[in-house]
Nucleic acid binder design. Structure first.
Lengths: 334, 334
DNA sequence: TAGGAATTGTTAAACGTTTTACCAAAAATA
DNA sequence: TATTTTTGGTAAAACGTTTAACAATTCCTA
């Protein structure tokens, strides 16, 4: 395809050996000022760049990390990917980014590709709690960590997540303190750890107030605003005594708010609302939305550091939880 | 790092030559049923995956495309990246994604990395209209195309963009039809083609109404909500006769809306507003925001196809413009 | 002036594939 | 039976680097 200039060509034109060129490029040996200048000039002239494949084939390091993300791209994930990218750059790594779009088979394919020695390690947001297939890669010694979500059944696989239990607990408690007793919950996917743990937090708060957990107050839809709109309408039509809503995902918060409006209800007077994640504009909706704030960039940066730990120390297997905070605005009735 | 299993290991264990293993894997030659089974079993057993570097080093194809994006991650860019990713997957390509975060030097570094034979081609969103450095890579025959923005001074470099001129024209005309005559403009960066062309469209619409273009009605800030808030306040405080605002970028629309609120003005009564791009939630702000809708996914998919054209036909150099549409809601006063 | 250190550079093997050319054995043909 | 064809398989070169081991100069030092 491209017209290729190799180290051999540079060496020939400069009248030196291939090894000398390599040493000049990498500074691995002292080369006289004369030759060095001569060689760098030729390199400049041809705008020569060493072949990364050959390089990493030879020295077994790629300086590239794989990033496989499974999530519908809401601003939370964007923020995390950004944090990972920034940290990677700081440490002179490159990222091979793949978005699996919640497709389990594509996820498996992607891990297979990345396992073919083109990356030093992988950060994975699993699409399912079904990571059995990953064990064979772990056995091969491929450094992998989980971010955002994880499969609790796989031991020794590090995790970086938000403190989802605490987040669910805090938000629910806030609504309880406002006097709400029937709190509806809108979730995206049921079978992923953030959802599960946030609901655990929700239950824990209810328990403190001696309120029994009611399965019927939970309604789900997949990720999008539209699905949240549908789910919220369904829930509010079914459970008339609900006075507050807790929405577990960014984009869905918007859909829930739309549903409230379309049902001619007022937020927070008829229905209070707490959302999750910091989507741009939470502050200028009508009313401004109170939400659980997740430090996306911090999660991303931490994930990258954890991957590096895993690479350098194969035994590393911690679960790091990043704290969340409640951004109080108007939709909760404060 | 990883415990490596190579083709040699597979061959040894199966008692065949390395070449036979390769032929079984790639189906490049007919191998007897016996040996084939034998070999695939060993491959299964070790979960062997061929080394992509060695493979592509040998056959000069990577099946990987580079994607270098320069833009602050608003939902528009997310959508485009997603479109590119989907199309790439359909065509069995992988993406090496790099976000330069508007950093010109990092952009140059990234192109250099990607030019080292690790990708078949590159989709670039330039951070500046200063792409002179790209010519040496073009000369080497590296397939490159521009998306979202472009440098008009570089010939023969394909482009995929929104129809920014038309978009600027349409939105402005809509405001003019509502009777507005002093229309303020909030922009992000002045020196990128989308801004320039949208303003050209704005001017063209004004000309139709015999309104002279007034430089003083334009105010800029960089990308974020906060900057838009500051810029909008500054503009509205300076130019008291403004009755409508045209905001040229996603996140900034939100900041502009906040500014209007903070100045105790009513939208659309005191100040009408038209934004750009489809950020999640445009429909539930107060009031819902009228905006120019850009088909992000289409732009992304098209960009990937254009890159493939460029790869297969080095002479390809079209500029493809994807149409936009005006989503009319309440903020324009309709 | 001999001998050891620096200094500067090169040779060649290795990394893990693909593929051309070649070969042996079995099958088909005359 | 002798010859050709087909089938199934392999040896080895090549892709573009890095680096250990070695070699040739020049420079000191006693």
């Amino acid at each position: 395809m491209s017209i290729k200039v190799t180290m051999k060509d540079i060496a020939r034109e400069a009248g030196v050996s291939i090894a000398t060129v390599s040493h000049v490029i990498n500074g691995t040996k002292h080369i006289s000022e004369n030759k060095r200048k001569l060689i760098t000039n030729v390199i400049e002239k041809y705008n020569y760049v060493p072949d990364t494949r050959a390089k990493s084939l030879r020295n077994a390091v790629t300086k590239t990390a794989g990033l496989v993300v499974s999530v519908f791209p809401d601003s939370y994930v964007t923020g995390i990917v950004n944090g990972i990218g920034k940290r990677a750059r700081e440490l002179d790594y490159h990222l091979l980014f793949i978005n699996t779009n919640e497709d389990y088979d594509y996820e498996k394919e992607s891990i297979k590709l990345l396992s073919s020695n083109i990356v030093d390690g992988i950060i994975l947001t699993p699409s399912e709690m079904n990571l059995g297939y990953i064990q064979k890669y772990m056995k091969k010694g491929l450094p992998i960590i989980q971010a955002i979500r994880y499969d609790p059944n796989i031991p020794r696989l590090p995790r970086v997540t938000a403190d989802d239990f605490q987040a669910g607990y805090d938000a629910t408690k806030h609504l309880l303190q406002h006097g709400h007793r029937k709190i509806g919950v809108i979730i995206s996917r049921t079978n992923i750890t953030p959802t599960i743990e946030r609901i655990e937090g929700y239950k824990a708060a209810l328990t403190e107030y001696n309120i029994p957990f009611d399965e019927g107050l939970i309604e789900s839809g997949f990720a999008t605003e539209k699905n949240a709109l549908i789910a919220t309408k369904k829930l509010l039509n079914r459970e008339k005594e609900i006075t507050a809503l807790f929405v577990l995902s960014d984009l869905m918060t918007i859909g829930a708010m739309q549903a409230i409006t379309e049902l001619s209800l007022k937020c927070p007077d008829d229905i209070a609302l707490i959302g999750f994640g910091d989507f741009a504009g939470a502050a200028i909706t009508n009313p401004p939305i109170t939400n659980v704030s997740l430090s996306a960039e911090t999660i991303g940066r931490t994930a990258f550091d954890v991957l590096l730990n895993k690479i350098n120390n194969p035994g590393y297997d911690k679960h790091i939880q990043i704290p969340t905070s409640l951004m109080i605005r108007k939709s909760c009735g404060c």
